[in-house]
Design a protein around this nucleic acid. Structure first.
Length: 255
DNA sequence: ATGGCAGGGCACCCCTGA
């Protein structure tokens, strides 16, 4: 089975591409989506069901919104981070084929002086507590999503351009390292990867063409799940599509 | 140094993203 994550930047616009991608990737058992930007009453669950998939979702108008599309039953769904009051819909946790999946859209933070950055740090702290609790219950767990963190300088096309801003700040990278300290493993770095591998490219300035991107979408795995992981790759194909999301999927293969 | 592009809201200009 494969598990994947994709920030679609509006499911309303990207639904046809998502369904097409699922058909083109029949081994993908579960796909975590971020930035659906759709409130629950207008979520296209009927179209997704009609295409033959299970779906779970938690959305809001205009911003954020997460979902899981799957080829197997989606069980024990939890929305958001229990104990962390948050009107923003950014997390959906569920069990699929016995694997606990945490799909997350970690806040962007805007800039280091912003209240949104403080929110990001508080949010990361709450996520860490949730991960620790879930890992104790589920030995096979993955955190998939748009982390809005480039964990290392090699995950940034031009570190000089991004230094001093969000996505690369020391406190955010520290939060990423704290996840690793819980035992979570970056599936992408388990394997040899091409240099300059990115999952996001700005719409502006021909960034994709120039491969001026960031690796901010990740799949972290518990040790037991990482032991089952035989591949992890970024699928750049959807980024070449007409009207693409600015993010592209990341896929992990589990034996 | 700044804005570039895209999506959504609710109305044409503003907010947010990364």
């Amino acid at each position: 089975m494969k598990i994947a994550t994709w920030n679609v930047n509006s499911l309303k616009v990207r639904l046809p591409q998502v369904l097409e991608w699922m058909q083109a990737n029949p081994d993908v058992t579960a796909l975590c989506l971020q930035e659906t930007k759709m409130d629950d009453p207008v979520f296209p669950h009927e179209e997704i069901s009609a295409a033959g998939f299970e779906v779970a979702f938690a959305g809001q108008k205009t911003y954020n919104g997460v979902a899981i599309i799957a080829r197997a039953p989606i069980e024990d769904v939890v929305i958001n981070l229990p104990g962390f009051e948050d009107p923003q819909k950014r997390v959906i946790t569920a069990t699929i084929n016995g694997v606990r999946l945490v799909g997350a859209y970690i806040p962007n933070g805007q800039d280091l002086e912003s209240d949104k950055y403080q929110y990001k740090l508080a949010w990361l702290k709450a996520l860490l507590a949730w991960l620790e609790a879930q890992m104790a219950l589920f030995p096979e767990l993955a955190l998939l999503g748009d982390y809005n963190i480039a964990p290392e300088d090699r995950d940034v096309h031009d570190i000089k351009k991004w230094a001093g801003g969000v996505l690369v700040s020391p406190l955010e990278r520290e939060a990423f390292q704290q996840m690793q300290a819980l035992g979570l493993i970056d599936a992408f770095r388990l394997f040899d990867q091409p240099e300059k591998s990115f999952s996001w490219w700005d719409y502006r300035g021909f960034s994709f063409k120039k491969n001026a991107g960031l690796r901010i979408d990740h799949i972290l795995m518990s040790p037991r799940l990482a032991a089952r992981c035989s591949a992890c790759q970024i699928d750049v194909e959807p980024r070449k599509h007409e009207r693409p999301s600015d993010h592209t999927p990341v896929i992990a293969t589990l034996d």
